[in-house]
Structures are given as C-alpha cells and as structure tokens.
C-alpha cells in the first residue's frame, strides 16, 4: 500500500523555498501595514500635534510652537463659555442618548413583528442614516425656520398658536432656534432623529439573537407582556443596549454638524457644545492652542467610554 515512499516522487520535505504566501508572519505584517499607516497618519500624528499645540502658544497667525505648559488648560477652564459648553455637551449627550435607546427599543420591538409593508417601515426607519448628515440637518433648519416653519404653521392651523389665549402663546411663531430651551430641544431632537436608525439596527440585532425557544419557554412559564420584557428580553440584550448607548455617546460627544448647522451654538452659547466651541475658538478664532486644549478635554471621557465599550462587547460575546 505504501508505495508512494519508495517511488520516484520527490519527498515533500525537500522543497525548502516557501513562497511569501507560505510565511504567515511576514504576510500578516504586510497586510496589516496599510491599516497601521492610515491610523498613524490620520489619527496618531494629529493627536500628538493636538497635545503639542495645547501645551504651546501657536495661533494661525503665528505658527511657531513655543511651549507654555498648562496655561491653555487653565485659561480654557476659567472661560465661562467653556463651562457652559461642557454642561451643554453632557446634557445634549445624555438626554439624546436616553431618548435614542428608549425609542430604538420600541422601534426594534415593532420591527421584530411580522406585518404587511414591513420592508417599507424598515426602509423609512433607515432613511435618516443614509442621507448626508449636513443635508438632513439643513432640511431640519428649514422645518424649524423662525418665519416659515411648517411646524408652526400646523400649530396655527390647529388653533394652538398665533391668537391671544392659544395654548402655545399669541405670537405667530415659536422661534425654535431662537429661544434657549427650544433651541436645545431642537438640537437634541434632530440628533435623535439622526442616530435612531443605527441604534434601532443594533437593538434589532440584539433582539434577534435571543433564542426563540427562550421566549417561548417564558410564555409557557406564564410570563407575558411587561414581565417578559423586563425579566427576559431586556436583561438578555443588556450588553447590546449598552453598546448602542456608548456608541451613541461617542457619536454625540464628537459631533458638531447638528449644532453648527442649526444654531452655531446660539442663542448666546445656549447650545454651544465642546466640539463647536473647539471649532469656533481654534479654527474660526485662530487660537489653535486653546482649540487643541478644549478638544483634548473630551479625550479622557471618550477613552473611558471606549474602554467600557470594548469590555461590554467582550462580555456580550460570552453570554
């Protein structure tokens, strides 16, 4: 039977020159190199530069880097606008993410059910995510216009606005982006509209990962409605809910488009967040050093969130 060893065929061990495709270590390094180059060039170098800038007195008018220690951080922190921005950022992020999680949960639960036109519902839910964020926000800018807002028009037609004694007041418009509270509410609303599709898809993935038999067992065991949601589906999808929440938090902390397009931080900084303040101070104001310092304030928070995110992702895999 074992004729092969005696025959003329060369032993397989004799060929020693393995090609590059056989040397896994080299191949691996080669294939990962573009990714590393990309990260170093577009994230690593700017990050180091930001740290360097924040410790210097560089401006757009004077690009020479002279180190000044922690002066920028002290000045930034003593600036009342910065403190307001910090507060606004936290409010903006927490409120919008709480809304996103609750609403995406409801949407995902609805989309798990079978109904006619489900594909259309899914398509509509996904739509805000497919539009460029700036375009979508400009659309909302018109919706919230101080004179031509269709929302105000609807309120007026419904008799809620525009005449003395109406529920929303006698003025003809609500001035969505001109009143501090309404402006913040508008910014949060548009951001929720924007992030809801992503969170819904994440939650859908979580819900469909629960084994059908577990849900059926819960039903046979007598759990219906709220009890099933609170004791079975929510605990089982908690790691994924957590990931959706943290993802959204990072998105919100770092996003400036919605605020920039809708209010430019106004009225009077009432919707100013750290990302827009960084931009106004560092780019439009030309003070690169302070801009860098402001943007770096976010870094420890985001790094913490990212670490938490990775931990939860690992935990979610296990269970």
């Amino acid at each position: 039977m074992n004729r092969g060893y005696e025959g003329t065929v060369a032993a397989p061990y004799e060929s020693t020159s393995a090609g590059i495709k056989d040397r896994q270590g080299t191949l691996a390094r080669l294939m990962i190199a573009p990714a590393i180059a990309y990260i170093v060039a577009l994230i690593g170098i700017p990050f180091v530069m930001a740290i360097l800038y924040s410790l210097s007195d560089v401006t757009t008018g004077d690009p020479s880097v002279d180190l000044v220690g922690l002066r920028n951080y002290r000045e930034v922190f003593n600036d009342p606008v910065f403190r307001l921005s910090l507060k606004n950022t936290c409010l903006f992020a927490l409120v919008s993410q709480t809304l996103v999680i609750v609403l995406s949960r409801i949407l995902a639960t609805l989309l798990m059910k079978e109904f006619r036109g489900k594909w259309l519902a899914r398509f509509l839910v996904m739509l805000p995510w497919t539009a460029p964020i700036a375009l979508g926000t400009i659309g909302w800018l018109w919706m919230l216009d101080s004179i031509f807002s269709p929302i105000d028009w609807l309120f007026r037609r419904a008799g809620l606005l525009g005449a003395p004694g109406d529920l929303l007041g006698p003025m003809t418009n609500l001035y969505w982006l001109g009143e501090p509270v309404l402006a913040m509410a508008s910014v949060i609303f548009v951001h929720v509209w924007r992030l809801l599709p992503l969170a819904t898809v994440i939650q859908l993935a979580g819900l469909s990962s629960i084994s059908k038999e577990i849900l059926e067992a819960a039903e046979v065991d007598g759990a219906a409605g709220w009890r099933k949601t609170l004791e079975i589906t929510i605990p089982l999808t908690l790691p994924i809910i957590g990931i959706a929440f943290l993802f959204g938090l990072v998105f919100t902390f770092t996003d400036m488009t919605v605020v920039y397009v809708l209010t430019r931080g106004g009225p009077v900084h009432s919707t100013q967040v750290l990302s827009t303040w960084t931009f106004f101070k560092g780019i439009e104001g030309g003070d690169l050093a302070q801009g860098a310092a402001i943007s770096l304030f976010l870094f420890p928070v985001l790094a913490g969130v990212a670490a938490l995110l990775l931990r939860m992702a690992r935990r979610a895999e296990v269970t």
Binding site: E213, I214, E216, A217, V220, G222, T319
Partner: peptide, 20 residues
C-alpha cells in the same frame, strides 16, 4: 388561549434555560 392559562409545562430541545 395563551400558553400561560393552559396549565401545561414544556421542556424544549435546547432546554431554553434563562442564561442570565
């Protein structure tokens, strides 16, 4: 009628224990 009012118990092939 829903399962909960039928007073039945069921053991599933995968056992369907609540993992949490």
């Amino acid at each position: 009628l829903p399962p909960r009012v039928r007073n039945i118990a069921m053991v599933f092939q995968s056992y369907a224990l609540y993992p949490h």
